[in-house]
Nucleic acid binder design. Structure first.
Lengths: 344, 344
DNA sequence: CTGAAAGCGCTTACAG
DNA sequence: CTGAAAGCGCTTACAG
């Protein structure tokens, strides 16, 4: 790797001048600048990022926290790949790389002295590596660390989880709005007895979807008996179990809004096992539009999230803060109703 | 952030001694060591990674190249999430983080002067950031850059693509073996006319699966007429089209081995559209065991890859090289036949 | 075992 | 506009 010194010598200028050519080009006379640029190009010069980070305290890296919930080893993020695509492309466009941090559940941290539950582990990593900020992907198992980081004053953008702090914001789908669309669609199809299978009580999207559901039901003048609200955990089996209990009611619903596609697939299975035709005897609507949604039988009506868009929005939000901008307000990205055969 | 200097002052020792306590603890007298360790703990000291990397030319980071094929924007990796889980956990266990590089398809690289097609872009990034090495995930669009990196002599581990170089190796499933298992399973079920839908000709897993297919057919003494080998591209529509053409043959196969689950799902659709019952009239076997496989109708017999295991193996291979070990031989991880209802 | 010193490669006030 | 110098925080021969 060629260094700034070699270029300086070859050009007969000081290292300061070479450095300026790359960092504040307009402060250098055009002739010197052009010479330096030419020589740098010929030698395929690339600045040493470690040296740069040491001198400037900025690294050109954004951290990504995506812990896999150790209490639920089978857990999968419903749209991680698209999220990463969005994140990465938006960060790349500004010259940033994405550092996936070894997370607190790992042996590594313990090795370097951080206890498994060290809530300031992310703060430390961010400082040690001079990260511009962090993007936090909710895994449901990291709440204290998320909170500690959000409070730290370092740029922080969480996905699908609400965080609070001087430079903390979050991005998620407009879940309430999505749930409303689902209910309106079902109401328009003539349904009156509409139940919902929710996500976990502490989960942001789950809460907002339930809120939207209730709002839309109220808007339509429809009652929501307690038995029509069954809590699931976003996993398929919970949807299946919830649907079974709904079917067993004295007055079962004619339509069920599920807060996630995985649960909706479970609900479909339960309906099939109970010998109920979908959508004739019971309509089902999901949320997420995972790949599976279009392929189950019958294909699932659902609310498509702008998965890559959430990644892009998260990237933009960190970058805004990294570049000194004001902390962006939380972003709620619109969802899109995709009508398939599981409802009408 | 507290620095080594502050600790040195508080302990009344030189910075060299403090540094040694962390890097070569046994060369420091026990008393000084204990004092330094205590003070460091009290101050929650963390070494500045940029300074460290600058001084040692090692960063504690492993790079990850995962480009999304710009010629195929809809492309999705069949098991990225599990791969990342395996990679990350194995790297974490040794204190390494994973740096997702802004890849060559991005505007960012052009911005910093790397042309879109710059084959040495990865070499440069590795040097600039003092990365220990790179893990390359095949996206089918980066061949020249992969080759250039593999040749560079920097530690290189590719996933699902063969690379060659002094410190380059790769890991993939034992695809030939898996295909053999598939064929043997079908032969054992009484099938004689077995066709295959392959992946792209240049793709390593695709080639190996075809090789295994042919080997097992030969072993069983069964012919493989040219029309029984149809090339797909791993995407669902190609499987559907290929299956249509197989069904249309004067002597159609009674069983079809698909080199990927997505294509197998397409094949299932084609069979359904043609009014053929699966597996009674035509059996279908896939490869990968994606989530979808268990959920289509009928559930798909397939070869499960050890997805996280591939990530772990890749991580171990880079770490071996980073720590000065010999270049590991390419690893071929065993697959597991999962029999479901699409075959018998 | 320990410290003073040089060095990793770059940036940025400070003078001129 | 340009250069000499100090500094970012750490590591590692080199003496002692």
């Amino acid at each position: 790797m060629t260094t700034i010194r070699e270029i300086a010598q070859l050009c007969g200028v000081s290292v300061a001048t070479v450095s300026r050519v790359f960092n504040q080009p307009l402060t250098v006379s055009r002739e010197k600048r052009e010479v330096v640029e030419r020589v740098a190009r010929e030698l395929d010069y690339r600045p040493n990022e470690s040296a740069r980070a040491l001198a400037t305290k900025r690294s050109g890296l954004i951290g990504l926290v995506w812990d896999t919930d150790h209490r639920r080893p089978g857990w999968r993020h419903p749209y991680l790949q698209e999220l990463l695509i969005g994140l990465k492309s938006a960060l790349s466009a500004h010259g940033y790389h994405l550092l996936m941090l070894a997370t607190s559940g790992s042996a590594a941290l313990r090795a370097v002295g951080a206890s498994l539950a060290d809530p300031v582990a992310y703060v430390n990593m961010t400082r040690r590596h001079h990260l511009g900020g962090l993007v936090l992907i909710d895994s449901g198992s990291d709440a204290p660390a998320f909170t500690a980081f959000a409070q730290s004053g370092l740029p922080c953008v969480a996905v699908d989880v609400a965080v609070d702090g001087p430079r903390a914001t979050y991005v998620t789908s407009d879940n309430a709005q999505g749930a409303q669309q689902a209910v309106r669609h079902l109401v328009a199809a003539g349904h009156r007895r509409i139940a919902t299978i929710t996500g976990p009580r502490q989960n942001l999207p789950a809460v907002d979807r339930l809120t939207g559901f209730r709002a839309a039901m109220a808007e339509a003048g429809l009652p929501v008996p307690d038995e029509y609200v069954v809590e699931g955990d976003f996993y398929r089996p919970s949807g299946q179990a919830a649907m079974r209990s709904l079917i067993a009611l004295p007055e079962p619903p004619t339509a069920v809004f599920c807060a996630g596609d995985e649960m909706a697939v479970g609900a479909l299975l339960a309906a099939r096992h109970a010998g109920l035709r979908v959508p004739e005897e019971v309509a089902v609507v999901g949320f997420d539009d995972i790949e599976l949604a279009a392929l189950v039988d019958p294909p699932l009506t659902t609310l498509a999230q702008d998965k890559a868009g959430i990644g892009v929005a998260a990237a933009r939000a960190v970058l805004t803060m990294v570049h000194g901008g004001a902390t962006p307000a939380p972003a709620f990205l619109p969802t899109r109703l995709v009508v398939r055969s599981s409802s009408r």
